[in-house]
Write a protein that binds this DNA or RNA. Sequence first.
DNA 1: GATGAATGAGTGTTCATTCAT
DNA 2: GATGAATGAACACTCATTCAT
Lengths: 217, 217, 217, 217
Amino acid sequence: MQAGNSTGKQRAGGRAKSFTETGRRAQIVAAAIDVIAEVGYQRASFMKIAQRAGLSSTGMISYHFDGRDDLMREVVAEAMRVADVYMRPRIEAHERYAARLRASIEGNLDLLAEYPNHLAALAEVLGNLRGGDPGMVAFTQGMEAILAFQVEQLRKGQQAGEFCDFDPWVMMRAIRAAIDDVVRRARDEPDVDVRAAGRELADLFDRATSATSTTSR
Amino acid sequence: MQAGNSTGKQRAGGRAKSFTETGRRAQIVAAAIDVIAEVGYQRASFMKIAQRAGLSSTGMISYHFDGRDDLMREVVAEAMRVADVYMRPRIEAHERYAARLRASIEGNLDLLAEYPNHLAALAEVLGNLRGGDPGMVAFTQGMEAILAFQVEQLRKGQQAGEFCDFDPWVMMRAIRAAIDDVVRRARDEPDVDVRAAGRELADLFDRATSATSTTSR
Amino acid sequence: MQAGNSTGKQRAGGRAKSFTETGRRAQIVAAAIDVIAEVGYQRASFMKIAQRAGLSSTGMISYHFDGRDDLMREVVAEAMRVADVYMRPRIEAHERYAARLRASIEGNLDLLAEYPNHLAALAEVLGNLRGGDPGMVAFTQGMEAILAFQVEQLRKGQQAGEFCDFDPWVMMRAIRAAIDDVVRRARDEPDVDVRAAGRELADLFDRATSATSTTSR
Amino acid sequence: MQAGNSTGKQRAGGRAKSFTETGRRAQIVAAAIDVIAEVGYQRASFMKIAQRAGLSSTGMISYHFDGRDDLMREVVAEAMRVADVYMRPRIEAHERYAARLRASIEGNLDLLAEYPNHLAALAEVLGNLRGGDPGMVAFTQGMEAILAFQVEQLRKGQQAGEFCDFDPWVMMRAIRAAIDDVVRRARDEPDVDVRAAGRELADLFDRATSATSTTSR
DNA sequence: GATGAATGAGTGTTCATTCAT
DNA sequence: GATGAATGAACACTCATTCAT
């Protein structure tokens, strides 16, 4: 999952939470991220998550979260928060859109090297969402908004003459899919050099978006 | 899932099957493909598949298949068979590697337009395999072999001077990931013009692989 | 199961059977004996028996037998028939009751050495009968009759002064239980010398029944 | 099943258990003992056990026990514990091996009179173990160890001149088989006087093992 | 007679969730 | 707040039996 440029998160339920409840929730979310990264979205049962979190029963999770979907929403929110903190400064350090795109791609895979479980969990949860899932609809829309922002960046790059002519939605999804694929590969083969893969992908999409190759003909 | 160049498959058990049993198996596999495409690999229970196939009980599926893994193997084999029949002549109609790559990408998405459930089920099953799954190991290896063949094609294209310098494994996985992403998108948003997306992706990876930009420098 | 001195068998159902049907039945019974000896009474499913018999479906068994109990009755009857043919002349070759008892014990274990599956299946089926099983009640009573005959032999030996004073029912059941135990042991450890065990058991029960030890004091 | 001289047991899983969980486990084990004694090992389904224990679903049993084997292990452990408590002082009250053997036989059947289901369940579970059952292997070995101890007692009795010459393994298995047979008979015919049977069996094996017959010659 | 596909009840097990304590 | 026992539905799978052909 390509991360960065998040629009920020907010809890689904609006009621105020005490400090310890917030702490418990964070603890459970952290355990969920590890478990999801390890065994996948579907096999990440409450029991496994509770064990990883050092809890003695799954009831604790149901107590703190309004169902499995709520927990998963928090997992995604936490992963996105981490990604946002990591990515935003690296992207905004650049002016030109092409440089920002490269920073985005390489940054995602540097992030993967540092937080492999976060990105793996993120990809797992989002990859297992269905369009029809009620309760996750608003969620999916939030994801679309983030993607739309990134697409808009591509479009601006085109208008600025940095990028050639292409469908920015198709390009953006291809970039995200390629990054997610490395995330999945890193999960199964921990020895993969994800930073090197990041540079390769950045080169790849640089060529794919660059205006120079067309103008030079 | 990018398909094509399948190595073919046959049932593990050697016992001869009657025509009607073969028919029932095919019917169940077809139902499984539809259900998997609709609700995903994990949620595709025998009960849903049996209902879709017009069977009164899940026992019938266990009667015809040697467990869930066996059914899933047949699902993949069937999807690969369809893909192979569709893709192979389209790819082999071209001489040059660049043209073959374009044919492969566009062909996959034309195939998606005609058999959306087949490709969706294929991606679902393969995407949910874990390294540790015993009984599916040989299966994963078979997929790797196909991917390796496609990587080899890219490498030959580089040697022939048609492609620029890039890591063929990274490129191949990026291509496959981009195609699979369209498959997933088409599943959730049936109105997507997948053939147009195919042309866009073909253009994208044509630029990303083309040797022209280097010669013009 | 101690065998011998059978009162003979008769089919439960009274209708006449054709020659081929009788052949099929015998074939199935033979397969059932092997399967039961190998995997036990409860795990001996129609499917395993059909496979062993070279039949392509379990329906064949249900066609020829009026349910599982009917098949099991035939299994016992066949095993008892074999045992009776083998045991009767060996026992009747002796005049004295003590010699007949020894012939009975050693004969049973010689029989075990020659037909291990028959005796194992016999013990399995009889050992898994419950008192309450309807449809098997008449059957159990038949077994009791055989045992009663053997008890009567012991009693006659006592009256003849060959045996000391003991409860013949308890003695008979102990003998049978000891023999059955060797049958079970031979099933799990095929290297056991069952004939040697037979001689040991014959000695054991010779001492336990002998009138000499008491008179000699 | 002849019991006594148990080596003791404790749960495989090391997790500490609350009092109520321990209570529930004991309740389920007690229900399992009753059901197994009534319908046998194989027919003792979780559903029947749950109903007997007053539970609404079989899931509760899976919650408290790590599978069917785990429950069966506890059943045997409980039966052996009861047997050990009952038998040990009765056996150790005697010095001589012959007296100990008599105490062992009569004690087992007195125990049967008091805990008929415990011994019936014990015999059922152990009698249905196959050599190939993984997870129960260590279990079978434990039973062999107990039997070996009892065999050793017989051997010592022979060396002490109390017993005549016989194969102690064959003798021990015959004794155990005779006791188990009474257990089974008591299960099907509750009116049997098991204590009387115990005295008869003790007399029987006293004669079978006694050294007096040899000295008088 | 013989076949084998179909049936439906039953198996142990996992799961997210609930609720009395 | 926190616990963990209890719940009931769902899961894949096996089984003996039935029945149209």
